[in-house]
Amino acid sequence: MIADLPLWLSILVSAFVVLGALLTMAGCFGLVRLKSFYLRIHGPTMGTSMGGGLILLASAIYFTVTRERLVVHELVIFLFVTLTTPVTLMLLARATLFRDRVEGNEGVPKRPEKAETPASP
């Protein structure tokens, strides 16, 4: 920790960090509290979209002001996490649909009639 900070900076960074952590925590609790897998899949996207975005933005602002030069490499993490999480979630969801259909579970949409091999797009 450095000795002195402008007040606006500390309030801005604090607000962003706390709100981001709150959103991420809400997503993780959703993972525990929701009933089915297809509902739970919506939980982690909160941490990766806005929750993570706010925390990374706070870090970028903080280091830009304290180091007195432009620090934006947090943006790389944000881009990477935001763009890759949908990919993993889609893969997981497709695997789950596949397994649910094989096991014949209820509450899962049927496979379309003209079946094709699950080719990646």
């Binding site: 450095i2 007040l7 900076l9 309030i11 960074v13 604090s14 960090v17 706390v18 952590a21 925590m25």
Partner: peptide, 24 residues
């Protein structure tokens, strides 16, 4: 003063993230 605000809110955020990790 301003450092104290930041310190405490970072502490709170880390507690929240830790609770989230426990949930996962």
């Amino acid at each position: 003063m301003s450092v104290t605000i930041l310190e405490w809110s970072l502490f709170a955020a880390q507690i929240m993230l830790g609770l989230g990790m426990l949930a996962t």
